[in-house]
Simulated scan of single mutants.
Amino acid sequence: MEALRLVLLYVHLIGFALLLGGAVAQYVSGRLRINAAMLWGSVIQLLTGVGLSAPLRDGDEPAPAKLVTKLVLALLIFVMVFFSRKRAQVARGHFLAIIGLTLVTAAVAVFWR
């Protein structure tokens, strides 16, 4: 089971890289819109996050409050990305909120013990 958890974690990190990298690339280009990397990154983050929350370890599961917090953040990001994907231009605040929530999600994962 540890190998499965590590594979899920690896794919989860790839999703994070796609989401954040795609967002930063769009921001630097000056054209604020949702790209395919952001969409796929948010989907991968959500699905692998649910998989990682399964009790695959022996008594070393994260706190339920942390899991719920990360789930809410991941759902928020996914909804913000999914329903904005066909717009030619996304509002600056909306786009920065996606980046900010992505960074907050990573901070929750790292700093919440």
Rank of each mutant, 00 (worst) to 15 (best):
M1E: 13
L4T: 03
L4G: 03
R5E: 15
R5Q: 12
L6T: 03
H12W: 01
F16M: 13
G21P: 10
G21Q: 04
G22Y: 01
V24M: 04
S29M: 07
G30E: 00
G30T: 05
R31D: 01
R31W: 00
R33K: 14
N35Y: 04
A36R: 10
A37N: 04
M38G: 01
M38T: 04
W40M: 01
W40H: 03
S42R: 03
I44V: 00
L46K: 14
L46C: 09
T48L: 04
G49H: 12
L52F: 00
L52D: 04
A54L: 14
P55L: 15
D58E: 14
G59Y: 15
D60P: 08
E61F: 08
P62T: 11
P64Y: 15
A65S: 10
A65F: 12
L67K: 01
K70L: 09
K70M: 07
L71T: 14
L71C: 07
V72F: 01
A74L: 05
L75S: 00
V79C: 06
S84D: 08
R85H: 14
R85S: 02
K86V: 02
A88M: 03
Q89M: 07
Q89D: 03
V90Y: 06
R92F: 15
H94V: 06
F95L: 04
A97Y: 11
I98Y: 02
I98N: 02
L103P: 05
L103D: 06
L103E: 10
T105R: 11
A107V: 13
A107S: 13
V110P: 09
W112I: 02
R113S: 13
